[in-house]
Design a protein around this nucleic acid. Structure first.
Lengths: 203, 203
DNA sequence: ATGTTATTTAACCAAATGGTTAAACTTTTT
DNA sequence: AAAAAGTTTAACCATTTGGTTAAATAACAT
């Protein structure tokens, strides 16, 4: 068998499925559309990934993992906390800007099937305890204000994710559908959020 | 015709449709399920709301409006800004807690059909300019720090909405699926977010 | 009571959709 | 070169789904 061709087809499918699933969600996605998008026919799609569910799960895991790695990287970096957070926020917002549909995709599907989310998390290598421990350590060392580290994490994620997930809303409400202005707003936001978070934790 | 019965059936449909649409989204919702949920059959559903699309639009508008009124109320209140914001945040988080699927529902559907979001917003009575003007006014009066009022609004919404929209994730990550602890966290959050926001804007 | 209008239902339909099958074509192995 | 294994396709199938229809029932007006 042609190893290159196989890889190529499989990857073509994964790329097509990712873009369709992210945009339309599990329920809205159509196997035919994924096949068209990948330039193959439906039977071949089923040959590679037997069912829609299996294909979806592969994509969900892939997408989920693409969003996570930075987090553990941040946790294990040995920069001072304010640098850590600053870099993380910037990189995270950049990542989201490149994948604006991802947050809503994940939010939607985590509610549709929380069990699968749990399984995905387990196999994702993310260590919630380590994240919390890292923040608690900084607090005990007197480097940042004492607070519930879960609040801190929720704040960082909320401030970064919401304006991108709710892009269409902000676009209409505050930018009269001027996408450049909106984009500029998000770009500026990398700094804004950083300052906002740092202000809230520095002593 | 029996006016009571009509109202009753129509309302039964609206209630059923709301709960099904919010949980499953436009694509995932089934007319049959809505009919069952309302205790009627499918033909009657189509008799009241000719198509799924029309029923969905009715629900989307209804749900959207249920989330908004507090905002304009806050804008037009003449309490001092810190009271205004404090009350708004508390009421808003309470509202979200009672309707945890609503944010994701709106996020998903606004991406599915931004045009319809725009139409809904227009007929919703919300005045983005007034919101921004209110914040700007407070800044010029020297009551709060100068900043982009759109950032302020995005921050308030992001901090309030995210931890509820991403409930299943936080639940697993930080609370080992202990829903009471999670609920307590969100309750405490009403205060946390308020302090967080006020800290960031007070001089 | 009787005709009229609104409400409700069971049965039905066409289109869409996830998935299968069997055969053709390629590539790899021997 | 021939057999085996892997890849690709067109045609097909069963089920689901949004939506329709025609008839029955209930409510109302006269």
């Amino acid at each position: 068998m042609n190893e290159f061709k196989k890889d190529n087809t499989e990857e073509k499918i994964l790329i097509a499925a990712q873009s369709v699933f992210i945009e339309k969600g599990m329920d809205g996605a159509r196997m035919q559309e994924i096949a068209n998008h990948a330039g193959i026919n439906k039977a071949l799609l089923h040959y590679y990934f037997r069912t829609k569910q299996k294909l979806f799960e592969a994509i969900f895991k892939k997408v989920f993992k693409s969003i996570l790695p930075n987090i553990m990287e941040m946790v294990h970096s040995d920069l001072p906390i304010e640098k850590k957070l600053g870099i993380f926020i910037e990189k995270y917002i950049d990542l989201l800007l490149k994948n604006p549909f991802v947050p809503t995709f994940i939010l939607k599907e985590m509610n549709r099937d929380p069990g699968f989310l749990a399984a995905t998390l387990k196999s994702s290598g993310i260590q919630p305890r380590e994240i919390l421990a890292m923040f608690e350590h900084e607090m005990e060392a007197g480097n940042i204000r004492k607070m519930d580290p879960r609040d801190l994490m929720a704040n960082i994620l909320g401030l970064s994710i919401f304006p991108i997930a709710a892009g269409p809303l902000l676009n209409i409400l505050f930018f009269d559908n001027n996408k450049q202005e909106y984009e500029r707003f998000i770009q500026k936001r990398k700094e804004t959020v950083k300052i906002f978070i740092l202000n809230s934790i520095m002593l």
